[in-house]
């Protein structure tokens, strides 16, 4: 299973005050807060960690069929931040989700997987109003509202993970 999350950094700055009293404590563990305050750009680290948690949560949410607000239980570890990318692991109970993030001045996008197989994933990101489309495939949702891609020729079905925030939409699926 795959999960992805995109954060529009301009939109996040407008919608959320990460320095609001009590806000960080409801989202991040003490160790994660240390990462935030030790970072060169604390605000960027906030959204990187948040997108990691969200991407991993989306895997859990899709597999369990449950919805919960429990960001503190999705724990970011081994976070390695580079100029335009970040790598890490999110741990939830006995599940371990490797993550890979792309960072630009405009957005942070994180992809979480159950196994380290990032090379096998197609990632589409766009900032237009158009609906995302993959040539040769039809996007549909099942009875639970979960998205899938169907090959128009063979009828073959594959899982797809969608996310959107502010100006950006993202789509990830196994190639």
């Amino acid at each position: 299973m795959i999960g992805n999350d995109i954060v529009d950094l301009a939109c996040a700055a407008e919608e959320s005050d990460w320095q609001r009293k009590g806000w960080l404590q409801k989202l991040f563990t003490a160790a994660e807060e240390q990462l935030i305050f030790a970072a060169q750009q604390p605000r960027l680290m906030v959204w990187l960690l948040w997108s990691m948690k969200e991407a991993a949560y989306k895997i859990w949410n899709r597999e369990s069929g449950l919805s919960r607000l429990m960001p503190l239980r999705f724990i970011c570890t081994d976070v390695r931040l580079e100029d335009n990318a970040a790598y890490g692991t999110v741990v939830f109970e006995d599940q371990v989700y490797p993550t890979q993030s792309r960072i630009t001045v405009d957005f942070v996008h994180t992809l979480a997987l159950e196994q380290n197989n990032f090379g096998g994933m197609a990632v589409y990101i766009n900032d237009t109003a158009e609906t995302m489309a993959v040539p040769g495939y039809a996007l549909f949702r099942d009875a639970k509202g979960l998205p899938f891609l169907q090959d128009k020729l063979t009828g073959g079905i594959r899982v797809v993970s969608l996310s959107h925030h502010g100006r950006f939409k993202a789509m990830v699926f196994p190639e």
């Binding site: 609001r20 806000w23 409801k26 989202l27 948040w50 607000l69």
Partner: peptide, 20 residues
């Protein structure tokens, strides 16, 4: 909050703080 009101997930914590 999410499906109907379309509240951004990062803002759910703001809702919790405001309710408190």
């Amino acid at each position: 909050f999410i499906r109907d009101l379309k509240i951004n997930s990062a803002n759910l914590v703001d809702v919790v703080l405001d309710v408190e």
